[in-house]
Amino acid sequence: MTSALLSVENAVVDLPTPRGNLRAVDHVDLAVGAGRTLGIVGESGCGKTMLSRAILQLLPKKARLSGRVMFDGQDLTKLSAEKLRKLRGRSLAVVFQDPMTSLNPVLTIGTQLIETIQEHLELDLAEARQRSIELLAAVGIPAPEQRLAQYPHQLSGGMRQRVAIAVALSCEPQLLIADEPTTALDVTIQAQILDLLAREQQRRHMAMIIITHDLGVVAGRTDEVAVMYAGRVVERAPTPVLFKQMRMPYTEALLAALPKLDVAPHTPLPAISGRPPDPTRPLKGCSFSPRCRYSGERCGAEKPQLSPAETPEHLYACFHPIAAKVSA
């Protein structure tokens, strides 16, 4: 994948804790090209957020990162703080889950937008203001001129997330990382925000990474999906392949455990028994094996490596994969 805009190579993130070392991200390789959308799916504690922070070089101070994060030809892990600051907000943008914490509560929407734009682009105040108005209009905020004078608390959660997206898009980033962008929002608002992200991604030919716990969010809106469990990518495939030809039992179990609208009420859900392993006490074998119904002897003793299935784009880490479906 030489053409990728971003490639994460063999990333490992270790966090020291009072209980010992916590390996939050365990040898992860990922790539995303311009104009493409990658979904990273996993449950709490699987390392998806730490991975996004590793990409942004925004890890907690005590965290140790090894591996490479190649973005547009340079290794972000080797850049100076000053160079990184120039890159973040300009070429690398991020939208977080909670817009109330990503926006500054004591500054107006206008100040925050204009400040970001002037920090990175050579525009005078009037031009930056004009651009802010255009951005707010583009993300679907009514009466954008009046909004510039408002504070975040005067907007609803959905509107605040639109503003956060406007800030992220303000300098035409090459890569947008959206970390659970709709988890804090209601379902009708969620659909609007996901549509907005998809539309802007297409229009600007950005690369986008959507991090979510919701398989429903990635299904219709990503080109490729990586499923994470206990710090590792356990399956990675083009989105349609992942949903139709999943090989990793965890992916199957996660999808099966979702309540679905086309199932009759009171149908017992195929729950995944047990819970994820303690990340400070890594297992020798496959991390999912204690919860896996296909698990065999080898699974407890040896870690399965992420390896290709029928096609080189489809990778999974399992000794007892679900049989490939015969249909083309």
Partner: peptide
């Protein structure tokens, strides 16, 4: 508005 975990179901834009 519910996101369906099936890539063949294209998200509706009619919301």
């Amino acid at each position: 508005a519910i996101p369906v975990p099936d890539p063949d179901v294209r998200p509706t834009q009619s919301v």
